[in-house]
Simulated scan of single mutants.
Amino acid sequence: MKDTLISPAVEFYDVVTRTHSEGGDALRSVLAEVDPSAGAILDVGAGTGRTVQIIAEAVPGARIVAVEPDLVMRTVLTHRVVADDDLRSRVTILADDAQGMAIPETLSAVVLYGVLGMLDRDERARLWDRLLPRLAPGAPVVVELLPIEKPQTLPPMPYAKERIGEHLYEATLRGEPGEDDLMVLNTTWRITGEEGEVRTVHGTSQWHTFGLDDLARETGLTAERLTLQAGLLRAGG
């Protein structure tokens, strides 16, 4: 994986995932059918641990491997795991990226939220070459993707909104086409209180665009859309 700059907006990661909670609901639904005896559950790009928490609740007893290369988010992830007796006994944290991570011998499920768009086509191909042979029969691969299959201009739009204490956090998102299949995404966060604007934070990231059908072709797995931004890949028809 290419080196990437940490966005100044990383502090708002959990505000975004809370606002867009439908991906977590879809993940719970899929994982409810997973047999933890079939292998570990691999969470690639585990972030601050929100998906780890969902996995642990949806699949009691499952061994979870959480992969997160970003130091800031991994620090929060570690705090979350250490503070919970159940998570502490079940979750192994790897400070690796998707290309360099150690993969358990057998996987009962794979979660790829917020990470696939950071990989170009060749990098995804290498990831699939490593992951697919480790999947237990019928193991689900739950993915997150932008609802945009090709680079395009996105006018500013509301992205997230949350009140925390006496402050209101509001974000807008806009996008521009980059090179090849890349989208350049810009977020602007405005934090306001009773006296007006407290501060403004700008963040920029890049995301390789693709569709769920593209992932099905890359993997040879069947695909099912779960929500606007979540999809399921699974062997068999």
Rank of each mutant, 00 (worst) to 15 (best):
I6D: 14
I6M: 14
P8L: 06
V10E: 02
V10W: 12
V16Y: 15
S21T: 14
E22K: 14
G23R: 09
G24E: 08
D25H: 15
R28L: 11
L31D: 11
A38S: 13
G39E: 00
G47H: 08
G49M: 00
V52F: 01
Q53D: 14
I54P: 09
I54Y: 05
E57C: 02
G61H: 08
R63N: 03
A66K: 09
D70N: 15
L71M: 05
V72K: 06
R74E: 00
R80Y: 02
A83N: 07
D84A: 04
D84Y: 02
D84P: 01
R88S: 10
S89H: 10
S89L: 02
V91C: 03
L94D: 01
D96H: 13
D97W: 01
A98G: 07
A98C: 09
A102K: 04
P104A: 06
V110E: 07
L112V: 03
D122G: 14
L132T: 10
P133V: 13
R134F: 07
L135V: 05
A136I: 10
P137M: 09
G138K: 00
P140F: 04
L146K: 13
L146P: 01
P147A: 14
I148R: 02
E149L: 05
K150P: 00
Q152N: 07
Q152K: 10
T153C: 03
T153L: 13
L154P: 07
P156V: 02
A160F: 15
K161I: 08
I164Y: 09
H167K: 12
H167V: 10
L168Q: 09
Y169R: 06
Y169S: 01
R174M: 10
R174H: 12
R174K: 09
G175Q: 02
G175N: 00
E176L: 09
P177E: 01
D180W: 07
L182V: 10
V184F: 07
L185K: 08
T187M: 11
R190H: 12
I191P: 07
T192C: 05
E194V: 08
E194A: 14
E197W: 08
V198I: 15
H202T: 11
H202Q: 12
T204V: 13
S205V: 13
S205F: 06
W207E: 13
T209I: 03
G211T: 03
G211D: 00
L212R: 10
R217D: 15
E218C: 08
T219V: 05
T219K: 02
E224Y: 06
L228W: 06
L228A: 15
A230M: 11
G236M: 11
